[in-house]
């Protein structure tokens, strides 16, 4: 009881520091300091979470955090300045994947109400789309695959079918939310395919906008995971990233004199133009 209060109080301070950090990131003079403040907030959040009484073994936590830190430091240090955007896309994909896994792991807690099951599906769905979408964005920017818009006839129909099967499987899963449900695996697989389908029709110069949008999604995935785990800090920070990500995406589109819809669907328009 006491530990829970201390943890939640620290979470309030973390949330506050995230907000101040984001605000400071928005102006050139204070940007670097803002990033530092937000990093300290993250450190505080992680440190106090380790006192959660649900956590009874630390071997996996220590091992995974060490591994993640080493990879993160190496990746951030070794990457060339020119390939920063694709690095951000890659990190973002990992964040989405983490939210997917957190939602999935929560199924093993036992008791699952329909509300929790829906939020689990949401965190898996958004996390999956973020993961595969970011991987495609990374591959395009690093020229592992052609950077141009990839479109084919009937793409809209295929996407429609994907959305329908996704919704059906999600609904089935919420009816009987079990960890080994076939519908759960279907949702994971289809979400990954959907993420790919969303990003392939978008071409080279528009990639930064897509990464910004995917960044917003990874925030929403964290937010959904927050509902799954009943964690205020995840909800607040996830929503902050989700909302500010959408606004930033919009600002970036406006800077290019285009609308978000135009960026997302311009690939399809090119197909229409070439067929007419």
């Amino acid at each position: 009881m006491n530990a829970a209060i201390v943890i939640n109080f620290a979470y309030i301070i973390s949330a506050l520091a995230f907000i101040i950090g984001l605000k400071m990131l928005g102006s050139p003079a204070s940007a670097r300091k803002g990033n530092l403040i937000s990093a300290v907030a993250m450190l505080l959040a992680i440190a106090v979470t380790l006192f959660d009484k649900q956590i009874i073994s630390f071997e996996w936590i220590v091992g995974s955090m060490l591994l993640g830190t080493v990879i993160g430091v190496l990746a951030a240090r070794l990457v060339a300045m020119t390939s920063m955007p694709e690095m951000v896309a890659l990190f973002n994909g990992f964040g989405g994947a983490a939210s997917l896994l957190v939602g999935w792991a929560a199924l093993y807690d036992g008791v699952t109400t329909p509300f929790i099951a829906s939020t689990i599906v949401l965190s898996i769905l958004i996390g999956g789309v973020t993961l595969s979408g970011s991987m495609i964005a990374w591959a395009k920017l690093s020229e592992k695959m052609p950077g141009r818009a990839i479109t084919f006839t009937g793409q809209a129909v295929v996407n429609g079918l994907i959305v329908i099967t996704l919704v059906l499987n999600a609904v089935w899963f919420v009816q009987v939310p079990e960890a080994e449900s076939i519908h759960l695996y279907a949702v994971i697989a289809i979400a990954l395919v959907f993420g790919i389908m969303l990003v392939i029709p978008i071409g080279g110069a528009d990639m930064p906008v897509v990464i910004s949008l995917l960044n917003s999604y990874s925030g929403l995935a964290a937010c959904a995971a927050g509902f799954v785990l009943n964690n205020n800090l995840l909800i607040v920070s996830g929503a902050l990233v989700g909302a500010s990500g959408i606004i930033l995406t919009n600002i970036m589109c406006r800077a290019m004199n285009r609308s978000l819809a135009n960026v997302l669907f311009s690939g399809f328009k090119a197909v229409k133009k070439s067929t007419t």
Partner: peptide, 30 residues
């Protein structure tokens, strides 16, 4: 937000979305 800060801001908020780590810690240790 000035255009020069778009990418750092995106990257900085991307780091914040890693907050899902807090949830992951509980899953890994419970």
């Amino acid at each position: 937000v000035p255009a020069t800060l778009h990418t750092p801001l995106m990257s900085g908020s991307n780091a914040i979305s890693g907050i899902t780590l807090v949830g992951a810690l509980v899953s890994a240790g419970a």
